[in-house]
Design a protein around this nucleic acid. Sequence first.
RNA 1: GCCGGAGUGGCGAAAUGGUAUACGCACGGGAUUCAAAAUCCCGCGGAGAAAUCCAUGUGGGUUCGAGUCCCACCUCCGGCACCA
Length: 842
Amino acid sequence: MQENYPFGDIETKWQNFWDENGDFKTDLAAAKNPYYCLMMFPYPSGKLHVGHGRNYIIGDAVARYKKMQGFDVLTPMGWDSFGLPAENAAIKTGTPPAEYTLANIAAMKEQLRAWGCMYDWEKEVTSCLPEYYKWTQWLFLQFYKKGLAYKKNSNVNWCPSCATVLANEQVVDGCCERCDSEVDQKAMDQWFFKITDYAQRLLDDLDTLDGWPTRVKTMQKNWIGRSEGAEIDFPIVPRADGAGDNVDKIACYTTRVDTIYGCTYMALAPEHPELKNLVKGMPQEAEVLEFIKESSKLTNLDREADEVEKEGRFTGRYLVNPYNGEQIELWVGNYVLMYGTGAVMAVPAHDTRDFAFARKYNLPIKLSIQNPEGSLVLAEMKDAYTEDGTCVDSGDFSGVDNREAIKQMTALAEEKGFGTGKINFRLRDWLISRQRYWGAPIPMVYCPSCGVVPEKEENLPILLPTDVEFKAEGESPLKGSATFMNCACPQCGGAATRESDTMDTFVDSSWYFLRYLSARDASQAINTEICNKWMPVDQYIGGIEHAILHLLYARFFTKAIKDLGLIGFDEPFKHLFTQGMICKKGPDGNLYKMSKSKGNVVSPEELLKQYGADTVRLYTLFIGPPEKEAEWQDTGVEGASRFLKRIWRRVAENHAILCGADIPVCPPDVETMEAPERDLYRKTNETIQQITRGLDGAFTFNTAIAAIMELMNAIDALKISADSSDSAKIVFRDAIVNVVLLISPFAPHIAEELWVELGHAPGVMNADWPVVNEAALKRDELDMAVQVNGKVRDQIKVPASASQTEIEAIAMASEKIQTWLEGKTVRKVIVVPGRLVNIAVS
RNA sequence: GCCGGAGUGGCGAAAUGGUAUACGCACGGGAUUCAAAAUCCCGCGGAGAAAUCCAUGUGGGUUCGAGUCCCACCUCCGGCACCA
């Protein structure tokens, strides 16, 4: 056996072996013990850095571990391959998006392979290929039939730089998530998915996701934003001049109907649909219209500012509070959003924003909730009181607890017909239209006689045309393609035009995990039987950055597809693991997540050449707890490399002993061992126990690897040589074999090579995960600490069989302890078997 | 502002309420070597000559015993944020 660790040779060798052997191919129908290990599929940007690598390395370690535990593991990989970068590359270089994308996929496949990550490529899905997007389009049609896909003209988020609309989820601080340009509001006809129909289910089912990090569940809960309240109609006081209005009342949504007796004005959103009519012909009209104009300009900037001055204008109109018949002023306020009804009843005494607004414009303030101490005095209030309390000056409700009043007052509104209890969600419908080329075309047709018509299923896929021109500005490239745009109406056969928008790429990634299970099936999108067998995904692994967008959409799709009768489960991912990002110090000395723009990217190529894949994998897993962020340090890689070399060297140095025919092939026998051998044998089994426990609960790869390092230290402590006893050699060999088994999910290539060197048939990944020998863990004697008043004062050895009283006696007999007890009264002695004795003295 | 998470050596970090600092990195010393690299051995929180004392962001509390549990506060990170 070679003295030096030839990582380059063995890594190529075993990667080829796994391929040829089909070690990661899964027979979906025949599998008896399915385990679906899923990693978020990447956008094929062309190059992965070691930060991306963490996701695949963790996933591969889990897959290999589960395989050794006897599961039929499915680990597929695919490509989230529609999206803007390919289109931007086309604008820049003229390379067609398909060509650019497929070249990147090929390059990244090689990178993944070089890392030793094994996937069942027979199940590969590529979202930009017609075989896949045909079924994305098909799902769109099913959603359309069910009323889940609809078209609406609305104000949408428009990114001028990407020249496309964005979903609310893709707007961050008023800017485009992708390019950081400021997002405008624009009225457009757009396609939406009715995710709001599922708001309640998306919220409720979060409680069933025990295997998800609470952090992610909380983020989704906040995003869905459920609130319980009431919608109350305020009648409009007719104009003095007798001119009519379109409506005779304004509805407002409130979660605090209990404060309504303190309502002193109402404020409308500047975008409120009735606002312009209500002020028409009023003396205030010009001023209000000017205000609307200014506010709409400010909308985006507002979002970025921490606190924007609340401003408003009186409309000249009045409303009636239906509870007490009082007339209140109707205002327009820049702080009111077009959310709920776009109108808020203002209760300055009990809402911070209304308080500030009322102070600014000298509007009346009325107390309607008294705090439990009864100490609120209106004249002394510096800010609104927003807590619970008792209703005051609230007609029949005075004296009622405010939480109770909400129920009673809502009931009254329903009884009298001027209001109703209502639940509101912050979540809006999902805008999926994109005015871009590189996405799945929305399979809808516009016919002059039939109107909006869905394409026939048998005509799918609606292929992306190739006769298009890519320009940085202007309309969607699809609009310029006559071959694409002109079509026959699916209903009447007459000349018609296609929808020129394509779907948001998040649509593609909302169901790919189902498609892996029937990736080559040209006859249907989803194989119900196989899906029900393999889903939900046992372990999903990906970045925290997808906590809301992708994971919420995928959950919505799963529920909608279930309602279509295609699958039998509500939630797609049983366990979710979100790994932390890998950061590195940039040239300026600050820590950033790895990115090209910060100049702190570590490419795997150089590292693989210098150290090999196993070293990079080992370091990536050892760097820290996998769910936390970690800082990449080049010296750390060196350490991982050193450790693998050390394992290799131990096997090479002791090859004769490890494979020698002169040692009996039999399991270690605890009864006949000398003490040092027993210590090592115990350590080996303790290590197996610790690592197995760690990997089953959380993914404590870092401590698992530390445990293997400790075991290696213990192996070296035995100082084996040719002259050692058979018993010692057997224990030594057992320890080395277990090191190889335990490290194999993390550093699979070296493990495979050493496995063979140790005399086994090739294929450590198909070996059984080691099992603890309980007999090895037993001890005759235990080391225990003796504390006096909680401070360690001595170490004692006690027989493992000693009773608590016996342990106490041994502790008390210690000379050191005696000196600490001198002149003191022992009040209490606590014995924690196997750990310590604590003597409390006064 | 609201909701999460975190704060432990020079650094990355360990620790079911039970001996704080495992494991690794860096550093120092020694062995080997003509020399170096590699490797192997030893040391490595602070103060102190030592006994011993002090150390897990700060201050309190519960407990025989707290990094861990409770209360208050400080700092950092993430999410949400005029949602009525």
